[in-house]
Design a protein around this nucleic acid. Sequence first.
DNA 1: TATCAATCGGATTGGCCTATCCAGTTTGGT
DNA 2: ACCAAACTGGATAGGCCAATCCGATTGATA
Lengths: 229, 229
Amino acid sequence: MNSGAQHPDGPAQPLRSDAERNRERIIAAARTVFARDGLSASMASVAREAGVGIATMFRRFPTKEELVDAVFSDRMDAYADAVTVALEDPDPWNGFVGYIEAACAMQAADSGFADVLTMTFPTAKALEQRRNEAYQAMVRLIDRAKATGRLRQDFDPSDLVLIHMANAGVVNATGDAAPDAWRRVVALFIQSLEAPARGPLPASPGHEPLYKAMLRAGQGTTTPPGKSS
Amino acid sequence: MNSGAQHPDGPAQPLRSDAERNRERIIAAARTVFARDGLSASMASVAREAGVGIATMFRRFPTKEELVDAVFSDRMDAYADAVTVALEDPDPWNGFVGYIEAACAMQAADSGFADVLTMTFPTAKALEQRRNEAYQAMVRLIDRAKATGRLRQDFDPSDLVLIHMANAGVVNATGDAAPDAWRRVVALFIQSLEAPARGPLPASPGHEPLYKAMLRAGQGTTTPPGKSS
DNA sequence: TATCAATCGGATTGGCCTATCCAGTTTGGT
DNA sequence: ACCAAACTGGATAGGCCAATCCGATTGATA
């Protein structure tokens, strides 16, 4: 993708050439492994795939969140781009529907990204900033679709998160045994969003509880799955 | 619940009294732990909760599937009962809707059961038999609802599995941070199922691929999460 | 080319998991 | 009250994981 640019935020000291090469090898490997196994993949498995030692892994990315940040911030750009494209559609409802389909397709194509869309990682700054940008654009997209009357009025931006959670459930459960199952589920969802509403909905959980939920989920994936009684 | 009945299928030799006591302690503990942590909870954590040794655990339930079978076959009865109740509703659509809500509520109330509904365990005979009974009744419920014209004609029994997968995604992701979020998602789903359909749907994945998917998911939970490169 | 600091990666530690083994304890019939 | 069979649970083996340490290696500079 972007071969010229380094990782954006000031590399106080440029890495030595071999270090930079390994860094990119690690990111490429993580892209592959996370796409296949989701964010629960181990750091060690990424190192193995990259052909570098475990220590190199941890020296460059001391926490998994930093690796996730480096790997998915540009995929989050693509996500934000999808909103922009949708906003350019002359038919707001078409744009809205196309956006949901595109976003869910991205989830289906990359298990790691499916996880990213339903979790939040406060320390992954680049990632979270892009997520917020995408969110702002998304709110405009929703308002536009509501204004035309095709999108039900009680739709809430946080409903998109719920859709992503539901879609992640389908994608995770079906995997490559039924790789297109999500399309049917998403199609049902979209039809339920079209105005006129066929009935009232239970109240939206609201932003803040959903944020807490995404935080909680993220911590589960980043930390070993151990429990204490 | 049922205090009189033993585990149904012929206990060739009745267990010694202390063994039987431990067996029930284990099942009770598993009910608690699975409900809290889902089926990914470890056998060891169940043993700890039950206050028995690890060996006792494995002697009574050599595989996790046997434990799952013992714990959830009666919950699957309740699931099947919900279909029966729904079939008695004079309004088939009401019955259908009520059934989906009840089933999803059971998922929300018990993480373990949420997993059970989206996975299959071929060796868990009691569980799978009850699942099939429920499935047969469910097909009748669907046909009845379609006959009245309130349920869209292209609804497929396997769509219920997809709904459960989606709901499991929401329930897992939100947990107790947004414990009612699933209600909104399910309400949207139901509204999309009401006739007249607002548009065609992508083809159903069909029974067999979905079964494969459920199998795959089950194995992931039963076996350690290790991977090979 | 010579030097040295940055970097590399294998070995290791400590934790949790599944699963098995075996010496000590409990049960129930006599 | 006695004893054999059934049962118990800690110890243990083997595997995967996150994370750290340190001797060997390599890149950049003079």
